[in-house]
Design a protein around this nucleic acid. Structure first.
Lengths: 216, 216
DNA sequence: ACAAGCATACCAACCGTTCGGTATGTTTCA
DNA sequence: TGAAACATACCGAACGGTTGGTATGCTTGT
């Protein structure tokens, strides 16, 4: 019997491979349209391995959302814009960074948890909650810089750092939908540019001294 | 045999009933997770009727997107904000109208074609194209008012009416995702408020005379 | 030796789709 | 006028393939 590759640990165990497969396949086909067999094939494992690590398909969805939260938060935490001194510079650095990673196929740059939320919010509350935790957890990482930028510029607003942080995520999620609809990235990038313009206007409002952060 | 209602067009024919059912069920469960049986049950018809009117499930998806485009464009065309004189007032009236119809369950106020786009953009190009036509067709209806408002206020911008119109749709689509994630409407409404604030800032920019359109 | 990690084989339910059939118009033409 | 010929709308049982899930056994590292 040509039992091929035994247990070689070539880049990750079965669980991690399944999680990576879920990230890729679900972004391309959606959660419901992705079968367990699809995932096993993509991960190069069998169904036995799948149900050894995950009780149900829904449980994999939850785990995939959590895995997404972990990996993306590490990814953003290491991004270079954090080294900027001014909080507002860091905020614009974040948006610019988000623009920069809109590249390639939509399946490569769109958001797993945003996609899953929209699909399963009614049928799989456990997955929805895991996705919500990822989205709002990520948004929350922007709040300190927004709050600091407001304080530094003496901005009194009728909006909160939290609401602006969440708005940035709304724009990004919406931009992804536009990209999926057209197959291109232009409309998505344009929309993020509008977000940049909004931030520029917001933070040069009250009794502005100079004209920070316009253009590139 | 209690064969009930014969061929009377009482309350719509089977095709329309299926289209309405698709609008409701797909928004609640997603396209892939909605079975043909689900749709038939919701519409009160049999599978025979389904496949008499639609060649495949995908064909129903395309028809549902077209039906959505028709019904929503009629819905917006009849909205009261069109009676306002100033183009910018009409633009704000549109946004306020969008806010007003964010009510009830997410399955009732979210966008069918946005949901379907995200789910099937890779697997069902025909549905994706129909959805894209609906989204961008709707966005295009905003362009004349935006262009007129820019002209009336002498605004020279590095953005186009088309890109701003599409940005409004991105914000709305993103707001729907936030609503689905939380189960509530607050974050969605907040995000649309940020959009309102953006428009206010944009149109009071160049050499502003008064301070039109701030707050309520 | 033994449990964790994984593979093979299998199942019942469900999926989209097909198809033979009925009931009710609508058109054609003598 | 009227009846044959055809078209449209709908029904519902059945089919083959796929689905998520299970039962069980082999293979490793410790």
């Amino acid at each position: 019997m040509p039992r091929p590759a035994k247990h070689h640990p070539e880049r990750g165990d079965a669980r991690t491979r399944l999680l990576n497969a879920a990230r890729d396949v679900v972004r391309a086909k959606g959660f419901a349209a992705t079968s367990v067999d699809d995932l096993c094939k993509a991960a190069g494992v069998t169904k036995g391995a799948f149900f050894h690590h995950f009780e149900t398909k829904e449980a994999l969805g939850v785990a995939a959302a959590a895995y997404w939260a972990e990996t993306t938060s590490a990814f953003f935490a290491n991004a270079p814009y954090h080294r900027l001194d001014d909080p507002l510079d860091r905020l614009f650095g974040y948006v610019e960074f988000r623009k920069a990673i809109i590249d390639g196929d939509p399946a490569e740059f769109t958001c797993l948890v945003g996609t899953m939320t929209q699909e399963v919010y009614g049928s799989h509350p456990a997955i929805r909650d895991a996705c919500a935790a990822s989205i709002f957890g990520h948004a929350a990482t922007l709040e300190p810089d927004i709050a600091a930028a407001m304080a530094a510029r003496g901005i009194e607003a009728d909006w909160t750092p939290a609401s602006l942080a969440r708005h940035t995520q709304a724009v990004l999620q919406g931009a992804f939908i536009l990209a999926k609809a057209t197959g291109g990235r232009e409309d998505a990038l344009d929309s993020v540019d509008h977000l940049k313009r909004y931030l520029t206007l917001l933070f040069s409002q009250p009794r502005s001294k100079g004209n920070p952060h316009d253009g590139r």
